[in-house]
């Protein structure tokens, strides 16, 4: 009988002993965790995309609970998540300024000239190392679709050699902004319709030579804007989205259509995203 009892007692006893010791240890070494952290974490999407700038949703939840990050810190969750988080934190969620990514280049295969024919790996970062890319314009979209590859939200398509972004699908996760070697993808307010879609800082004469839709520095937009939202520096018109009232005078007046009305989408665009 002891053959059975001894091992059972020893093993059970040791297990019990360690169990008791561990439970005592967990009481002794207890770490106070703010209950808000868990609530906030549950309210967040849990995608761990890192767009907020914290290491995953858990990191973001800690920062929000400690007040280091605003309740609107989660960019991909949008207004709904912000409201839930605000409830937990006991504050009012301010109307969230939704930003979306925009490709600031319209130089597709028809409008922009090439300097050589690129036949290497289909990656913008590689193409950019070869004399700045195949386009004559050293600022424009290279069209290999690196941004398309990193987009997890089905918001980017390559149409006629340049990237276009569907702002309805964009969650402002910033991945395309980071990967673009030409830095032509920027965050713009969702509500803004007039966007200067050119980044070329070359003089107007040069721009006219290689692209039919680039900013040539005529400053017509600067002169015509009723709210003085435009400024002009380094041969390029820049728009201050806070001053812009979306009157679209600039879009009408721009001789090269470098200022785009982003609320109008082309047929091809609609077809691409419908599929």
């Amino acid at each position: 009988m002891t053959n059975i009892i001894n091992p059972v007692v020893v093993l059970g006893g040791l297990g019990l002993l360690f169990g008791v010791l561990l439970s005592i240890a967990s009481k002794v070494f207890v770490v106070e965790v703010d209950p808000k952290v868990e609530d906030v974490l549950n309210a967040l999407p849990g995608a761990n995309c890192g767009a907020c700038g914290y290491p995953g949703c858990a990191g973001c939840a800690v920062a929000i609970a400690q007040g280091k990050a605003p309740v609107t810190a989660c960019t991909i969750g949008g207004q709904k998540v912000a409201e839930n988080v605000a409830d937990i934190m006991g504050v009012n969620a301010a109307q969230m300024d939704r930003n979306v990514a925009a490709v600031l280049c319209q130089g597709d295969c028809d409008k922009a000239k090439d300097k050589y024919v690129y036949q290497g790996l289909q990656d913008c970062r590689i193409q950019a190392t070869l004399a700045g890319g195949q386009k004559e314009c050293s600022y424009g979209c290279l069209g290999c679709g690196s941004c398309f590859d990193v987009c997890e939200f089905n918001a980017i398509r390559m149409i006629n050699g340049i990237a276009v972004i569907n702002k309805e699908n964009c969650t402002a996760c910033n991945k395309c902004v980071e990967i673009c070697p030409k830095k032509i993808i920027e965050m713009v307010p969702y509500d803004s319709t007039a966007i200067v879609k050119c980044k070329s800082e070359d003089p107007g004469k040069l721009v006219r030579g290689y692209c039919s839709t680039g900013c040539i520095g005529c400053q017509i937009c600067v002169k015509n804007c009723p709210t003085e939202a435009f400024s002009f520096e380094n041969n390029l018109a820049r728009i201050n989205y806070e001053k812009c009232i979306n009157c679209l005078v600039c879009v009408e007046k721009c001789p090269t259509n470098a200022i785009d009305n982003s609320s109008i989408v082309s047929e091809e665009f609609a077809r691409e995203f419908a599929s």
């Binding site: 010791l21 561990l22 240890a25 967990s26 002794v28 070494f29 207890v30 770490v31």
Partner: peptide
């Protein structure tokens, strides 16, 4: 498990 608990604290 113990090391983990202690280290956390």
């Amino acid at each position: 498990q113990f090391v983990e608990l202690a280290l956390k604290k």
